[in-house]
Amino acid sequence: MDAKQIYQTLSEKFTGRIKQFQENTHPASVVVESDAIVDICSFLKRETELEFTSMISLSGVDLKDQGKMLVIYHLGSIRHKHKIALKVELDRNNPHVPTVEKVWPGANWYEREAYDLYGIVFDNHSDLRRILLPDDWEGWPMRKDYVYPKRYHTWDV
């Protein structure tokens, strides 16, 4: 299926919860409501014509000027060889979105990473801790307004 058809299938199934279709990105992306993400993902994985076997990647993005955060799910199917990106838009002051680790267990670490670097909270995540930075690190370094620390433990940064 090409991205357009995937979008149409989704918008028929989830009327009102699919916000937008962006064709000029590569792969094409579908913007969805954040609280529908788990349903949409499990549908995408289960449905035989879609069968998104794996989550390729998950990235956070900080859109500071618009007061938003994005989470982008890149999904791919090995059987049908198609790809798509799902996007959810979050409030920058309180970014949170349900976890999809029940759908693809591999999402666990990606979500922890987005939490670690952006402070995006994944609701119902089984183990939401910092993953790359030490536990006592302060701040969310990948945010655009992050200020580098001066000192860490007993030495200058």
């Binding site: 990105t25 590569h26 992306s29 390729i56 990647s57 990235s59 993005v61 982008i72 890149h74 790809k83």
Partner: peptide, 20 residues
């Protein structure tokens, strides 16, 4: 301006860059 996700086969698997 644009958004791409491009991947290539590395010795250890799929290396992808998502660039905005």
């Amino acid at each position: 301006a644009g958004e791409v996700y491009v991947r290539a086969e590395n010795p250890r698997g799929e290396l992808g860059f998502y660039l905005i």
